[in-house]
């Protein structure tokens, strides 16, 4: 790669320089420039929060409840379990309830591969990125946002991005203590995990199953992405999901 700005093209360097010079001329005199640079530098490194809606302020119960309410309003289904060992059965039940084949694919996330899948022997599990033939995929959310009822999925071999979009049914596990109040809370988490100014290749905010209103503004689910989104909240404090032995 001789040209650091692209292996294929050259010649747009001139366009770049001309454009930046032109903008600079309308906005700055030389004296102002140091000030402008400082303002930009500070904003980028301090990334101050603007206005964060108060609706998600509260304890875990409040956040779980708000997340659940908004996700449900956006046509997803949500259930709570109190122990990881309950997850395989919850998945099997979801598939049964919708007459789907007992087959599911997820990535290499140890939190998913390490679940007690031997408890549900009729449920076939496989790993890897999504295939066209997959009917149901599964993922673990990096986090969630209570404010708008939103899952936050990060790319990588643990949870390949295609699993979020290609199959028609999507099951996502999220831990209750990973449901944050706001988007800003999640950005701080991402900075903490990946480092300042570094983002995972893809961060997907998902707030319900795929939909379209393109035909006469009538809502239809499953336009290109999943038609069903089922969320399993792992909440050790949950009473709802006590073991059904």
């Amino acid at each position: 790669m001789a040209n650091p700005r692209g292996p294929i093209l050259s010649g747009d360097q001139d366009v770049r320089d001309a454009l930046l010079t032109k903008i600079r001329r309308t906005q700055a005199t030389d004296k102002l420039d140091a000030k402008r640079r400082q303002a930009v530098q500070e904003r980028l490194s301090n990334h101050p929060r603007n206005i964060v809606p108060k609706r998600s302020d509260g304890n875990v119960d409040h956040k779980v409840a708000l997340f659940t309410k908004l996700m449900t309003a956006a046509d997803a289904t949500v259930e709570e379990v109190s122990m990881p060992s309950q997850i395989p059965r919850a998945v099997a039940e979801f598939l049964r309830a919708h007459n789907l084949p007992q087959r599911i694919r997820f990535g290499k996330d140890p939190a998913l591969t390490g679940l007690a899948w031997d408890q549900t022997p009729s449920l076939e599990v496989s790993d890897g990125r999504a295939r066209v033939s997959d009917e149901t995929s599964m993922g673990r959310a990096f986090a969630a946002v209570a404010e708008s009822g939103t899952l936050v999925m990060t790319s990588g071999q643990d949870n390949p991005t295609t699993l979020n979009f290609l199959p028609e049914n999507h099951v996502v596990v999220v831990e209750a203590n990973r449901i944050w109040g706001s988007y800003e809370d999640v950005w701080d988490e991402i900075r903490h995990h990946y480092g300042d100014t570094v983002m995972p290749r893809t961060v997907n905010l998902i707030s319900g199953p795929s939909r379209t209103g393109d035909i006469e503004q009538r809502l239809e689910l499953g336009a290109h992405g999943p038609k069903r989104l089922h969320i399993i909240i792992l909440n050790s404090a949950s009473k709802a999901g006590s073991p059904k032995e």
């Binding site: 939103t150 390949p160 983002m199 995972p200 290749r201």
Partner: peptide, 17 residues
């Protein structure tokens, strides 16, 4: 429903992208 943040190409170990 979907807000997607994309930063650069496929990373080491990625299975898609």
């Amino acid at each position: 429903t979907y807000t997607t943040f994309s930063t650069g190409p496929r990373r080491l170990g990625d299975l898609d992208g």
